[in-house]
Simulated scan of single mutants.
Amino acid sequence: MTTKARLGATYLRFLELAEAICSLPSLPALDPLEERMLGSIARANDEGADLSVRTMMSRVEFGAPATIHTRLKSMRAKGWILLSDTEDARRKQVELSQAALMHFDKLSKCVMKAASTTR
């Protein structure tokens, strides 16, 4: 098997494993925009950056501020994110929920398993 084929097989195996994880009962599904926003929140969280609702709403790649605000409310209701208080009561920090952190941990394990198995 060529290196190119092996890399493709690893990614396809990861997709299989990730799909299996996502089909297990856990958090409600996200729409594509919410998934992109979750990735952005996760990267900021990983970098230790403070991420406020206002900062998220200024991100033009996610659409209009009203759309972003609606999606943040949806993600919070679904259990993916938390909006925590700051010293300024008007500002809320956006953070991953414990369930979202566990979801990313499961996906990481899928990546490791896909990389270590050969089809």
Results as ranks from 00 to 15, higher is better:
Met1Phe: 04
Met1Ala: 08
Thr2Asp: 07
Arg6Ala: 02
Arg6Tyr: 03
Arg6Trp: 00
Ala9Arg: 08
Thr10Met: 07
Thr10Trp: 02
Thr10Glu: 01
Tyr11Lys: 09
Arg13Thr: 13
Phe14Asp: 02
Leu15Thr: 11
Glu16Pro: 00
Ile21Trp: 01
Cys22Gln: 15
Leu27Val: 03
Ala29Glu: 03
Ala29Trp: 07
Leu30Arg: 05
Leu30Val: 12
Asp31Val: 02
Glu35His: 10
Met37Leu: 07
Ala44Cys: 13
Asn45Lys: 11
Asp46Phe: 08
Glu47Val: 12
Asp50Val: 04
Leu51Asn: 08
Ser52Gly: 06
Thr55Lys: 00
Met56Thr: 04
Met57His: 13
Met57Pro: 12
Glu61Gln: 13
Phe62Asn: 11
Pro65Arg: 15
Thr67Val: 15
Thr67Phe: 14
Lys73Gly: 11
Arg76Ile: 07
Ala77Arg: 14
Ala77Lys: 15
Gly79Ser: 06
Gly79Cys: 06
Trp80Gln: 08
Leu83His: 00
Leu83Asn: 00
Ser84Leu: 06
Asp85Ile: 10
Thr86Ser: 11
Thr86Lys: 04
Glu87Val: 15
Ala89Gly: 01
Arg91His: 13
Lys92Ser: 05
Gln93Phe: 11
Gln93Pro: 06
Val94His: 15
Glu95Asn: 12
Leu96Thr: 01
Leu96Ser: 05
Leu96Tyr: 03
Leu96Trp: 04
Leu96Met: 03
Phe104Ile: 08
Phe104Ser: 09
Phe104Val: 09
Leu107Met: 12
Leu107Glu: 05
Ser108Gln: 02
Ser108Leu: 03
Lys109Tyr: 01
Cys110Pro: 00
Ala115Asn: 14
Thr118Phe: 05
Thr118Trp: 09
